[in-house]
Amino acid sequence: MAYQFDFTFIPDYAGMLGQGVAYTLGLTVFGGVLGIAIGIGGAISRLWKIRPFDGLYQCYVELFRNTPFLVQLFLIFFGLPSLGIKLVEWQAAMLAMVLNLGAYSTEIIRAGLQATPKGQLEAAESLAFTRRETFFYVMLRPALLKVWPALSSQLVISMLGSSVCSQISAEELTFVANFIQSRNFRAFETYFLTTAIYFGLAVMIRQLLGAIGRYAIARRAAS
């Protein structure tokens, strides 16, 4: 007998799936905002070699970029309690997202800052910009606009990667999927639906960030 696909469970679990989506988006937004903040700090200290932060940041970036997110998550959630730092699931998931995105955005933003043409710095100097003005208007803002596409795709990658947070029972979308399939025994249908939702989220975030980037560039061109 051929297998009968059965998607009739969807209405019963729509609310739960919605909560899972909200959790996943929460992790992404929170991780994105704080991660980019960490990244700006890291890029500055790496670029100007501000001791001891540049060395610390370099270690941090290399360690986080060369180990799997899942292992970082396990180390934070299962490992830190033996050092006396106890975090509940959502705190551990958030912390891991922030630290992971922070490491990637440090590298991305640093590349953007490094690409500031020398002539623009000289122009800013000849217009008597203060150091702070030069940094914000000539270096940071154009750098962020330049690397915005790279930051956006990193954010999408991290959103998709956050599915492993289900393993420390943070109740994001994949956790919800695991729960549902343990109830209805429709593993394939449940995971298929969840995968489709992730795909929709990825497309949505990409479009949204792209629109924000275009808006910022248009505004800059107009001003």
């Binding site: 999408v156 998709l160 990667g161 599915s163 492993v164 289900s166 994949t174 999927a177 593993a187 394939f188 995971y191 298929f192 969840t194 995968t195 992730y198 795909f199 990825a202 497309v203």
Partner: peptide
């Protein structure tokens, strides 16, 4: 590229 590796494995 638009779906999590974990769910690809599950599927």
């Amino acid at each position: 590229q638009g779906t999590p590796l974990l769910l690809q494995l599950f599927m």
